[in-house]
């Protein structure tokens, strides 16, 4: 997989039922973050698996001052990949249960 330097993982256990789930995003290269957020690195947020779009959340992060506009695509892709994995795992768990 392409290494974007942006990691997204679950910030809570996935019970397979909730549509809104807590995710945590962090960057390996702090230079990607803007201004005062350079000293931080992890951003936690909730994401609705059914209603929300990863690219929109990435844009909100840009507008909130975390990232440069040029990184919106990378951030959106990282969230999208994680969301796809969560959905895939849920689908797999459901089929095993059946």
């Amino acid at each position: 997989a392409e290494d974007t330097g942006v990691r997204v993982e679950l910030a809570e256990d996935d019970d397979g039922k909730k549509t809104s789930i807590a995710l945590k995003l962090w960057v390996e290269d702090h230079k990607k973050l803007k201004g005062k957020y350079k000293e931080s690195g992890a951003i936690e947020f909730t994401f609705d698996l059914e209603k929300e779009v990863p690219e929109v959340v990435a844009q909100e992060m840009v507008e909130s001052g975390f990232f440069h506009e040029s990184d919106a695509k990378t951030v959106g892709k990282s969230i999208k990949d994680r969301v796809a994995l969560i959905k895939w795992r849920r689908g797999r768990m459901a089929s095993v249960a059946v």
């Binding site: 931080s40 690195g41 992890a42 959340v57 992060m61 975390f66």
Partner: peptide, 27 residues
């Protein structure tokens, strides 16, 4: 700790915190 909350105009809440040391060099 250095956690902080940022609320976007759309209403989404972002919680900002330092990355754990062991995560920084993870490959």
């Amino acid at each position: 700790s250095a956690t902080a909350q940022v609320v976007h105009s759309a209403g989404r809440r972002f919680i900002v915190s330092p990355v754990p040391e062991d995560r920084l060099k993870e490959q």
